[in-house]
Write a protein that binds this DNA or RNA. Structure first.
Length: 844
RNA sequence: GCGGGCGUGGUGGAAUUGGUAGACACGCCGGCCUUAGGAGCCGGUGGGCGAAAGCCCUUGGGGGUUCGAGUCCCUUCGCCCGCACCA
């Protein structure tokens, strides 16, 4: 049949061609509709169907959003759209983690108040998110530096204080000399400040801490109840670091009333303990050394350890050093007097800060004993020399235990010690309490005051928020910049009305972000942090999405908050995030993007040139979203071509000037089917409609419970390619159905293009349409390609009826020419038939 | 050292429970259309042999289980990530 249609591509001068794909026109047009109609806003009103909370980690607003933001919000948006189209009410909010050091450092450098630079950044982020067409419920937007928000951060602090879960104590803390602030354990990486890279020092300061350790076991156990990536759970388990063992008391030789506890995972080796070691920070070290022969040496050693950079201390390969204190303790299992040493290979932060040293069966103790010529004793038999850390029978220990397998001896020795109070079974955790004090300005004020008469007094809840004052000098001077704001610091005691001074430390920003997901549920509540009823609508979060860099800190803190608030009666669930997805990084030329490398891809210019749909769809198409992916400009062009082709085909098919009955398919025209499909499909029409149903099935499965956006997009590409290939052979109805399906399926990834194409074809709004459902009958075919193997090797393919029995399939395969050729008169030993798939002939 | 993950064409990546390896896309080659094209469309593209039919090889290396292995098991090499003197 002659094609008398005009080829639109022959007249594609910009501005004149109605069939030119123009994302710069399409995208803002639909964004305006969504903004005007508040399409993505949801209420907390009762809802009959399922409600879903799809949450992407809130951004830290600094400068402009980068390509990583585009990726994570694109992933979140695809999931949110998919759930909405399946009839769920979806909460997809947005906020800003707006307190923090970078804004303050920027202020120190430029003099711009952090409040102003942060506000500018938030405005830039908001503008970009809108330009990206992300389906956010803007009515719930929040920023953690807003007094209306941090008022409730302070309330939570007071709740934790009331419960004894927040406390103040003088502690050896990590001090960053460059940022002039205390760091959490978690912010120290290889002995260096996570942020600025400076060597971290140790200081003794009065600090606020949250009692995370009280939740160690529950934080560990409840990991089994949530659907998180296994590697994230593993990282949390390692961080919590549970060890089973015993606490054993070693008494002073000079004073039997004084005892020193050690934690050991190997009480079976107690008989091999030949010395005792304390960490330099152990509070008894200097007292024990006083008056002894090594007093001066010990003093010097402790002093040096105190000032040594942490990175130096923590190098495991470094030679062991230490000094004897000149005193002994008694080994509780055999009464032997063994010398106490101080050595920096023992850490104050783990266990009791003191250890029993068993050089025969511990590598570190062995290395130390070698250096100082201390006795080394074998108490576990085993192959090879010492140190030996494997299992075996006890030797040289005690008549009751010698010969016993060490694991059994371990249990018995604990029981034996426990009988008269020399020791007990114990569990030790690596997890430390969370140090939340920061000697910085740009953070949430800690709502307590210090009164000369009443001491530490919490600010009453009705006086919250304690508002962060404006100051001029943000530079850290070893105390919080707030301390210089005398008008603010000087206050009256809420208890007695006398003079009092405010706490000048601020909170770690991780505190702000440990509960924001709760506030989204009820963001404008002035009476309380939230209405429990509002939380019941949404919490826990059904799908949390964010970067792997938060695998430990943020996710652990948010879990701790949830458990603590649940215990205080404020929440009725134990875990905040039922499911977690961590997206991979976008690299370029195999490396992380950075200004210094000059390999940064900025979303701004990208969106300007190709439209955001191309950028979004490409980011999802590039590979599995949980993996790192390398950016390619050529790959981006490919996705742009695909979206353009889909849109043009749709515009063309929708064009009323087109002859409806062109093409070689079955007679067109409306026959009652909703999409104008002919009642009886045949030929190319049937092929294309089948392909559309195949795509529905494929995309649905790739989205449902998986995050296989890349293969989902590939399926829509296949469908679109078939539309293009069959454009001259199918009826208008079949073509429109296939294109409408393609647009509908690609909507979660390229919402503007999909919306526009769908609207051109149907006049309807795709986001108001239910997600398409594949017709089972369209997924079945009358015949299939039977794979014929001989000895497991592919030899032929033949068409077989779908209804064929295994015997019939076997007969078909055996009749296939190339199968016969390869059997070649040999004896058939066995025939394996996989119905619907293949036949494998085994010959002798 | 401990824990987790990954090795597939020239490239990014596909391959529900073991069942046609290389979907889709990039790149490359050839063609069409065009005054032109950095627009659009069509065809080809893992390697080797062959005119073709077809045959052989191929998922980091080696071995095993199986009618059949990218997928399961053992072993080995390489890379990435987390923790790391954790007693």
């Amino acid at each position: 049949m002659a094609d008398h249609r005009q080829d639109p591509h022959r007249q594609n001068l910009p501005g004149q061609d109605p069939h030119r794909y123009d994302p710069q026109e399409i995208e803002p047009r639909w964004q305006a509709v969504w903004a005007k109609e508040k399409t993505w806003e949801v209420t907390n009103d009762p809802f009959d169907g399922k409600s879903s909370y799809i949450l992407v980690m809130l951004p830290y607003p600094s400068g402009e959003p980068h390509i990583g933001h585009l990726k994570v919000y694109t992933v979140g948006d695809a999931i949110a759209h998919f759930h909405r189209r399946r009839g769920e009410r979806v909460l997809n909010p947005m906020g800003y983690d707006a307190f923090g050091l970078p804004a303050e450092n920027h202020a120190i450098a430029t003099g711009v108040h952090p409040r102003d630079s942060t506000a500018a950044s938030i405005a830039a982020f908001r503008r970009q998110f809108r330009r990206w067409g992300v389906s956010i419920d803007w009515s719930r937007e929040l920023a953690t530096n807003d007094p209306a928000y941090y008022r409730w951060t302070q309330w939570i602090f007071l709740e934790l204080l009331r419960a004894g879960l927040a406390y103040k104590k003088e502690a050896a803390v990590n001090w960053c000399p460059v940022d002039a602030t205390v760091l959490a354990n978690e912010q120290v990486v290889n002995g260096r400040c996570e942020r600025c890279g400076a060597e971290v020092e140790t200081r003794q300061l009065d600090q606020w801490l949250f009692r995370t350790t009280a939740y160690a076991q529950r934080l560990l156990d409840d990991l089994d109840t949530i659907d998180w990536p296994e590697h994230v759970k593993t990282m949390q388990r390692n961080w919590i670091g549970r060890s089973e063992g015993a606490l054993v008391t070693f008494r002073s030789e000079d004073d039997p009333d004084v005892g020193y506890e050690v934690f050991t995972t190997r009480p079976d080796t107690l008989f091999g303990a030949t010395f005792f070691v304390m960490a330099p920070e152990h509070p008894d070290v200097l007292r024990l050394a006083a008056g002894g022969p090594h007093e001066a040496e010990v003093r010097e050693y402790v002093e040096r350890a105190h000032h040594a950079p942490n990175s130096e201390r923590s190098a495991a390969e470094r030679p062991k050093t230490g000094v004897p204190l000149g005193r002994n303790v008694i080994n509780p299992v055999n009464g032997e007097a063994i010398p106490i040493w101080v050595a920096d290979y023992v850490l104050i932060s783990y266990g009791t800060g003191a250890i029993m040293a068993v050089p025969g069966h511990d590598e570190r103790d062995h290395a130390f004993a070698e250096v100082y010529g201390l006795p080394i004793r074998r108490v576990i038999d085993g192959p090879g020399g010492l140190p030996y850390s494997g299992d075996g029978p006890l030797v040289n220990s005690h008549p009751d235990f010698d010969g016993l397998p060490n694991r059994e001896a371990l249990t018995r020795i604990i029981a034996w010690l426990a009988r008269d109070g020399r020791g007990e079974r114990s569990i030790n955790y690596r997890l430390r309490d969370w140090l939340v004090s920061r000697q910085r300005y740009w953070g949430c004020p800690i709502p307590v005051v210090y009164c000369e008469d009443c001491g530490l007094v919490p600010v009453p809840v009705d006086q919250l928020p304690v508002v962060l004052p404006d100051i001029e000098d943000y530079a850290p001077h070893g105390r919080s910049p707030l301390a210089a704001a005398e008008d603010w610091v000087a206050t009256t005691c809420p208890a007695c009305g006398g003079p009092a001074r405010r706490e000048t430390d601020t909170m770690d920003t991780f505190v702000d972000s440990s509960w924001y997901f709760l506030r989204y549920c009820d963001p404008h509540n002035d009476e309380a942090a939230w209405d429990p009823e509002a939380l019941r609508r949404w919490m826990p979060v059904d799908q949390y999405i964010g970067g792997i860099e938060h695998a430990i800190l943020h996710l652990m803190y948010a879990r701790f908050f949830t458990k603590a608030l649940a215990d205080l009666g404020h929440l009725d669930f134990q875990e905040p995030f039922s499911a977690l997805f961590t997206q991979g990084m976008i690299t370029r030329d195999g490396a992380k993007m950075s200004k210094s490398r000059g390999n940064v891809v900025s979303p701004g210019p990208l969106v300007e040139r190709y439209g955001v749909d191309t950028a979004r769809a490409y980011i999802l198409f590039i590979g599995p979203p949980d993996q790192d992916a390398d950016w390619s400009d050529e790959g981006l062009e490919g996705v742009h071509r695909f979206l353009g082709r889909l849109w043009r085909l749709s515009a063309e098919a929708a064009d009323p000037s087109r002859d409806e009955d062109s093409g070689g398919g079955a007679p067109g025209g409306d026959t009652g089917a909703r999409d104008g499909l002919p009642a009886e499909l045949a030929g190319a029409d049937l092929e294309l409609v089948r392909k559309a149903h195949w795509a529905i099935d494929k995309v649905t499965h790739d989205m449902d419970g998986r995050f296989a956006f890349n293969t989902a997009i590939a399926a829509v590409m296949e469908l679109t390619n078939d539309c293009s290939r069959l454009r001259d052979s199918v009826s208008g109805g079949a073509m429109r159905f296939a294109l409408e399906t393609a647009a509908s399926l690609v909507f979660p990834f390229a919402p503007h293009t999909a919306t526009d194409a769908f609207h051109l074809l149907t006049g309807r709004r795709v986001w108001e349409e239910p997600w398409p459902v594949a017709d089972e009958r369209m997924l079945e075919t009358d015949t299939f390609e039977l794979v014929c193997q001989v000895m497991g090797k592919l030899r032929d393919r033949v068409q077989a009826p779908s209804s064929a029995t295994p015997d019939e399939l076997e007969a078909l395969a055996l009749a296939a020419p190339n199968v016969r050729h390869h059997i070649d008169g040999r004896e058939i030993a066995k025939v394996v038939v996989v119905p619907g798939k293949l036949v494998n002939v085994v010959v002798r």
